[in-house]
Structure formats: structure tokens, C-alpha cells
Design a protein around this nucleic acid. Sequence first.
DNA 1: GAGTCAATAAAAATCGACATTTTTTAGAAA
DNA 2: TTTCTAAAAAATGTCGATTTTTATTGACTC
Lengths: 251, 251
Amino acid sequence: MHSSVPNSMLGERNGAPRTAIEETVERLREDILSGHFPPGSKLRIEELRKRYGGGVSTIREAMARLMSESLVVSEEQRGFRAAPMSLRDFTEISDMRKFLECRALRKSIEIGDDDWEAQLVAAYHKLTKVEERLHNGVREAGLQRSWAQANKAYHDALVSACGNSWLMRIRALLHRQSERYLRYSLVHSAPTRDVHQEHEAIYKAAMERDADTACELICRHIDNTVRVIKEALSQRLSEHDAAADHIGKAP
Amino acid sequence: MHSSVPNSMLGERNGAPRTAIEETVERLREDILSGHFPPGSKLRIEELRKRYGGGVSTIREAMARLMSESLVVSEEQRGFRAAPMSLRDFTEISDMRKFLECRALRKSIEIGDDDWEAQLVAAYHKLTKVEERLHNGVREAGLQRSWAQANKAYHDALVSACGNSWLMRIRALLHRQSERYLRYSLVHSAPTRDVHQEHEAIYKAAMERDADTACELICRHIDNTVRVIKEALSQRLSEHDAAADHIGKAP
DNA sequence: GAGTCAATAAAAATCGACATTTTTTAGAAA
DNA sequence: TTTCTAAAAAATGTCGATTTTTATTGACTC
């Protein structure tokens, strides 16, 4: 560590990374998600070392871990790159998400108990509060971030009773991928349409245990988001190279 | 490398690992899959270093990569372990597999072209040959391995036209997990029932583009395998501790 | 000018020493 | 005996020097 005070004396900083690797993973992930390292761009060890500090192996292991999230790809003896992006890839991700989200939601509605309902009520309430402020045009620092968080929590709560940890894990993986496209498209999706109405409808269907309606609604919900992102994305694409299938520059 | 001849001069040895990390990954993966390192057991760096050779970072990075396959898990500052196994986990994996396999098969049948059919015919033919020999009780070195390979190739061919690389990737991930349970259960599933008949039925339904039947059959196919494995697994479990939920020893 | 090859520069992969944290052991106090 | 504390041991995490591989440059041939 760089500090002279050992970590263990700082107490358990909630959620904060404890090892250099974890910290590097988080910073690098954010830098890829935010587009600081464009899709397909080379990730040189020395460059990252200067940026994040730490030794070679620390950087290397951080990248190995991000490979499991498919945010980093590697070619043998040829180093690492930020994972490429493409409209096709985004389509595939979204298809999978619709598919898995429906499955998980259906199961949750089927077997969810009072605990599940309680959690859902709470998450929906929080999301509503944030979306109200967004809708009223409140200018507040980090509101966008709060919304993203509340939105994720709400959708997680919806499916949290599905009873299959693999389903949850894979769902989370795809959500993160999707979020990358959202951020790359520069769309701040919340204000662009009345998302809250969609959330409300799904919430009601779930609480009424109407699985068919809930699935139908959530598919439409994802479709709507996808449409907005794709529009922004192909626009951003055409600024550079309309014919290009993949996104970003590969120096 | 240990050899004095650089790898590049050996030509592209097909599929052989080119870096020390890759080699370590493959050997460690095999050792976990085969049960040499039991589920939940500690993976000490020094021990692995003696077993596979190489430096600390090499071993470390290999483990980081196997974390992405969920064959290795880590706790911060507390090293690595072989991923735990449990009946519950196996159930979840199998549910997901049925679900995804159906989806992929349906799509393949829907949009698969002549190429797809040709590949499928070829894979089915190979599998048939191997299963004939198995059925006739031919004693041949590596026949079991050949069957596993042909079986995988056949199932891959079935869904190869599904048009979604994420679906294929996740399917492969779950297949590998499933294989771990198969091997741990010590079941050599091929001879235990007339698997070929099932393969034939699925093959015919797929070629006739009868998606509903094909999906129905493949679900039953997976169910049958799961039943056999679970039986053997709970038997093996009861040898140690009938009440245990998770499998293996955690020293 | 296109292509080949060798020398050089750049980058990636590998290694073991060192620092930090966790676990074990031993001894003292209750 | 049990419980707590402190020192010792073991294991993990971190680092930059060294080795190996790939990419680049430029002279040379056809």
C-alpha cells in the first residue's frame, strides 16, 4: 500500500476495495465503461501502470479479472484490449436479456414470498422518489447516478426470488454489458420518455402475480430502451464511419 | 519456456498452449475438473508452483482466469479455492441448461441453412460411429474421451445456427460446469442407457424442422442425464455425510 | 515500387525477492 | 481447563528487473 497506515486500522470501509488489485479492477472497469478507453483500444501495461500505480502483476491480474466480465479481451503474446462493441453485439445482448429477465420474473412471481414483496415495495418506493425529482426537473448533483442505482435495485428486486443464482449471475453480467452501451450512446435514458409509467405497470402486474402481463411489459420496457440506445448509437456511429460494423478506434 | 527451442519455431501446434499461463490454466482446469483438487479445497500458491512450475504471478494469473469459469473462487487476502459443489448448484445449472438449450435449438431450427444441416449431418454421423462401437462393447483406448468429444460436437452443431454468440458462450460455460458434476459423480454416462436413441430422435426432429418436438426431446435428454448423475452423486455424498449440502472437504 | 530480410525498438510474459496480512502456536492469566 | 494475548510461522499480495516475443524500421533485392 502507498499509505503508511495499514488498511486493517482504517476499519472496514464499506464496499471499498481492500487490495490493490480490487482497486485497480474498479478503476479500470469504470474507465472502460465510461469510454475513457474506447472499445477495441489497446491497454498497454506501462500506460496503465502510470495511470493507476502499482506493479505489473497487479495490472495484469486486474485485467484477467475483467476478462471474466468480457470488458477486456486478450490475444496471446499480444496483450489486452478493451472489448470491442458493435450494434450486432448489442442486439444479441438485448435479446438474451429479454429472454432471461422474463424467465426470472416469471419464477419470482411464482415463488416469491412476503419478503420478496416487501423488498419490491421498498425498491419501488425509492425509485419512485428519484423519478419524481427527475420528472420535476430538479437539478441535483449525482441525481443521474442515484437513478441508475435505484433503477438497478428495482429490477434486481423484481427477480430476486427467482431461486437460481446462475440466472442471477448471468443476468447481472449482461446488465453490465448493456450499461456500457447505454453510457457509450451518451443517452441519459431516464428523462427521454416516461419510464416511470412503465415501472409502475410492471410493479402492479408483479404484485398482482400476473406473470404473463409482467413479462409482456418488461419485454416492451427493454425494447423501448434498446430502441433509444440504438438510435443514438447509429447516429454516433455515422459521425465516424457509417459502414463500420464495430465501434471505436483500434490504434 | 523450459525447452531451449522458442515456441515460434515449432510452428503453430494446433490448440497447444503457447504461454506458460495458458498451459497452467489448462492443467489446473483439468485437475479441478478431475477432482484432484476437491471442491472447496484450498489452492496454495507454493503447492501449485511445485506442481506446475513457474513463478508466483503465472500461477496467480491462471487462477484469475479460472475464476471467470467459476472453477476457482477467491476471498480477499485469503487466497483461492476450488469452487464448491452442491446438489442445489447442480440443479440450478441443469435448469439453466435446459432453458438455454431449448432457446438455442429453436432458433437454430428456425434460421439454420444448408451449411447448418451439413454440419449437423457430419457431427451426427461421427457420434453414431462412436456410439455403435460403445454399444458393441469395443474395448478401445480413449473411447470414452472420443465419445465425450463427439457428443459435445453433436450438441454444439445442433445449436450452432442460433445466431447469438452470447447464448453460445453462456451455454458453453454451463456445459463445462455440468461436466464437472458428471465427472465427479464417476458416472460414465454413455453406456448407462440407450443414449443413441435419444440423439437419433433429436437429430430427426431437427432435420424435419420440428422445433417443438426437438425441444421436448432435448429437455428430456438433459433430464435423463441429470437423474443419473444426481443418483450417483447423492450416493457418493451419503458415503461421507448424508446431511451435507455442499460437497468435498474444506481443510 | 513491391517484397524480403535483418537490426532495432517496443511490448508482453515471466520470475523471485520483499511487504503485508492471516493463521497457528505458545505462554500467561483467569 | 479455559480464555485471552503475543510472538512466530505460513500464506497471500505487491513489486520492478529480466527474459522472451512481437512490431517497426530501413537497407537491400528483384
